[in-house]
Simulated scan of single mutants.
Amino acid sequence: MSGIERFEAPPTNQITTFETAELTALCPFDFGGPDHYDLTIKYEPDGHCLESRSLKLWLESYRDEEITAERLADELYRDISRSIEPARLYVRLEQARRGGIEETVEVGERALC
């Protein structure tokens, strides 16, 4: 398990969105510095919700990990899916522009956009 805590979802039909511009991870290539990301997580609960404090701490654990944007988006999606088993889930990871190139990776249910 990823360390993300969860709680029982209310019975109403909801879409929950988390956004942060504070996600960082280390570039796994020769650059060696941190990559900065804007992250959006949207989900429709199916029994459980993400607990925001543990989500923040879990995301902070990536700051010392060497990982590509593609791999990071995939890991975030898989770990959240395992933690709360949502009805629908969407993860959008936007890497800060570097060298004139912007990269965005999207995983999951785009209908939640």
Rank of each mutant, 00 (worst) to 15 (best):
M1S: 12
M1Y: 09
E5Q: 11
F7S: 05
F7E: 08
E8P: 05
A9C: 06
A9E: 02
P10C: 01
T12E: 13
N13S: 05
N13P: 05
N13M: 04
N13W: 05
I15W: 01
I15P: 00
F18W: 11
E22H: 04
T24N: 03
C27R: 05
P28Y: 04
P28Q: 02
F29W: 12
F29V: 12
F31G: 04
F31M: 07
G33H: 13
H36T: 04
D38G: 02
D38C: 03
L39R: 05
K42P: 02
K42G: 00
Y43A: 01
E44Y: 01
D46P: 04
G47W: 13
H48P: 02
H48E: 10
C49V: 07
C49L: 12
L50C: 09
R53D: 10
L55Q: 09
E60L: 10
E60Q: 12
E60D: 15
E60Y: 07
S61L: 11
D64E: 13
I67K: 13
I67H: 12
T68H: 14
T68I: 10
E70S: 14
E70I: 14
R71F: 13
R71K: 15
R71Q: 14
L72E: 07
A73T: 13
D74L: 14
D74V: 08
D74F: 13
E75N: 13
E75I: 15
Y77F: 15
Y77P: 05
D79T: 12
D79G: 03
I80M: 10
I80Y: 10
R82F: 02
R82W: 04
S83Y: 03
S83V: 04
S83Q: 11
E85K: 15
E85D: 15
A87I: 01
R88H: 11
Y90L: 11
V91L: 01
E94T: 10
Q95E: 11
R97F: 00
G99D: 03
G100P: 08
I101L: 12
E103S: 14
T104I: 15
V105L: 08
E106L: 06
G108Y: 10
R110G: 08
L112M: 06
